[in-house]
Design a protein around this nucleic acid. Structure first.
Lengths: 187, 187
DNA sequence: AATATTACTAAGTAATCGCTTAGTTTTGAT
DNA sequence: ATCAAAACTAAGCGATTACTTAGTAATATT
C-alpha cells in the first residue's frame, strides 16, 4: 500500500554512531547527521523521533559492537591476563587513524554529566555493570582472593579503564603500555 | 582621560571559570557567561576578545587555583604518600555539592579533542608536564628505584589521575577510595 | 487504472548561537 | 567648562540550531 524505505535503519545508525563517537553529542548537528547517514532530515525524524533518539540508538549500536569485539573475547579467555588483554584490545578498538576516540559511553558521561538523559544513562550503566561482572568473573579464577578483595580490585579496574579511555586521547602508545603494565602488576 | 571599568577582570574570570568547569566549553553560551560574570556582552568582548579568549583566561585561572590548592601542597610533602594524598585532595578539589566536576583541563581535552585551540592546549600540556615532574620528584625519594622505573610509574600515575577525574563523575566515594588504595599498591 | 498510504524533497519555522554596533555615560586632561 | 577616550546599555547582525511542514513520488491493494 505504501512506498518502501530506501535505507535500512541499522545501517544508517552505524554511521550516526561513528559520527557521535568522533565528535560528541553537542558538536554533532542534525545537518551533519543527515549528511553522514545519507538520508534527509525528514527521514531522520521519521525513524528516530529526534536527535536524542538517534543518539540513544547510536549508544545501543556501540554497545553491540563493543560486546562483540571486546566482551565476548574477554568471556572466552581466562584469568587476570584476559582483562589485561581487554585493556589492550580497547585501545585498538577506539583507534581512529592516528588518534584515539576513547569510549563513546565514557565520552558521553564526561560531556553531558548529570544532564544525561535517563534512558541513555540507563543503557550506559547497564553496560558498565556488565563489564564489571566480567572482570569479577575473571578475577575469581584466583581462588586465593576473597570476595572483598575481588570487589575492590573490580572497582579499581573500572576506574582504570575510564582513565585509559580519556588518556588514550592525549598520551602516546608507550605511555599507555606503561600504564597497563603497572596497572596489572599486583593483581 | 577615560571612564573606569566597573569590574576587575580576574574577579569576573573566576566566575567564568566556574561556569566552564560545571558545564564544559560548548554548552556554556556567551549569554550565560555575561549573566554569571555580571557584565554586559560588550565588556566580555572588550576584555577578552571572544569566547575562546574567555576560556583561555579561565584555563589560566584554573591552573593558578590548582597550583595553589594541589601542587604547592604536594611539593611541601615527601614520598609516594604525598602523591596518594594529592589524589585524595583532587577529589575534594573537584567536588561540587553532591557530584564531582572532574578536572577542567581533562574535561576540555576530552570534550574538544584534537580541535582544541593550540594556545589552550599548550597551557594544558604545560600543566600536565608540571604535575608529572612533581610526581617524578616524589617517586625519586625511594633511591632503590632506577630512572626507567620512575618514568614508567610517572606515566602510570598520570593516566590514573585522568581516570580519577572522569570516574569521580560517575562512581561513589568508596569506589574511588578503592581505586586510590589499589593504585598505590603497585608502587 | 484508481486509491490510500507511506517516503521522499526542499523550503521554512522560531530560537539561539557568537559577535557587533549605534548611542549614551563616565572619566581625566586640558 | 570642554573635549577626547574609554566603558557602558541595548538592540540587532547573519549564521546555525533542532525541528516541521507543504507538496510530490512511489508502492501494495482494490
Amino acid at each position: 500500500m505504501a512506498r518502501r524505505k530506501e535505507y535500512k535503519e541499522e545501517e544508517v545508525i552505524e554511521k550516526a554512531m561513528q559520527l557521535f563517537w568522533r565528535n560528541g553529542y553537542e558538536t554533532t548537528s542534525v545537518r551533519m547527521l543527515e549528511k553522514e547517514m545519507g538520508i534527509n532530515q525528514f527521514s531522520v525524524y521519521a525513524s528516530f523521533g529526534n536527535k536524542q533518539g538517534v543518539f540513544l540508538e547510536s549508544i545501543k549500536c556501540y554497545k553491540k559492537k563493543a560486546q562483540f569485539e571486546l566482551i565476548d573475547r574477554l568471556d572466552n579467555s581466562e584469568g587476570v591476563e584476559a582483562i589485561k588483554q581487554y585493556f589492550h584490545n580497547f585501545i585498538e578498538f577506539s583507534k581512529d587513524n592516528n588518534s584515539n576516540k576513547g569510549c563513546l559511553l565514557t565520552n558521553t558521561v564526561n560531556e553531558l554529566g548529570e544532564s544525561t538523559d535517563t534512558l541513555i544513562m540507563s543503557e550506559i550503566v547497564k553496560f558498565a555493570t556488565n563489564v564489571r561482572e566480567s572482570f569479577i568473573n575473571k578475577l575469581s579464577y584466583d581462588t586465593r582472593k576473597d570476595k572483598i578483595t575481588i570487589d575492590k580490585q573490580a572497582n579499581y579496574l573500572m576506574v582504570a579503564l575510564q582513565g585509559l579511555s580519556v588518556a588514550s586521547k592525549m598520551f602516546n602508545a608507550a605511555q599507555l603500555d606503561d600504564f597497563i603494565e603497572v596497572t596489572f602488576k599486583n593483581l
